[in-house]
Computed example of a mutant assay.
Amino acid sequence: MKRIIDGRAYNTATAIEVFSEEECYGSGAWWGLYQTRFGEFFKVKFDHGGEEVLEFGPIADTEAQELLEEHANHLVEQYFGEMPEGGMAERRLTIRLPGNLVERMEVSATCLGLSLNSYAMRCFEQCVSKDGFPPMRA
Rank of each mutant, 00 (worst) to 15 (best):
L116G: 02
M121K: 13
I5N: 03
T12G: 02
E77W: 06
C24S: 13
I95T: 13
F46S: 06
R37Q: 04
R3F: 08
V44E: 01
E82I: 08
F41L: 02
G26W: 12
A109S: 04
R122Q: 09
D131E: 10
R92D: 11
Y79R: 01
P135G: 06
G26F: 14
N100K: 04
V128C: 06
T94A: 13
R91C: 12
A64S: 01
V102M: 02
E40H: 06
V18P: 09
L67E: 01
L112M: 15
T110R: 15
L116W: 01
E90A: 15
C24W: 14
E17R: 13
S118A: 13
L67S: 01
K130F: 05
F124W: 07
Q35S: 06
R122I: 04
L33M: 09
E23T: 11
E23K: 12
S108W: 00
L54G: 08
L67H: 01
V18D: 07
P58M: 11
Q126I: 07
F124Y: 07
E52L: 15
L33P: 06
N11A: 11
L67P: 00
D6V: 00
Q65Y: 10
F42Y: 09
E85L: 12
G49D: 15
A15F: 08
P135S: 06
N100C: 04
H48G: 10
E69H: 03
Y10S: 08
N11R: 05
P98G: 11
A89C: 09
R92C: 14
F80N: 02
E23C: 06
Q78F: 14
L75G: 03
V76K: 09
T36E: 03
S108C: 05
F41T: 03
L97H: 02
Y25I: 10
R122G: 12
V128R: 10
W30N: 12
G28L: 10
Y25C: 02
E103T: 14
A15R: 03
G57C: 02
F19N: 03
P58Q: 15
L114V: 07
A9Q: 05
V107I: 11
M121A: 02
M136P: 00
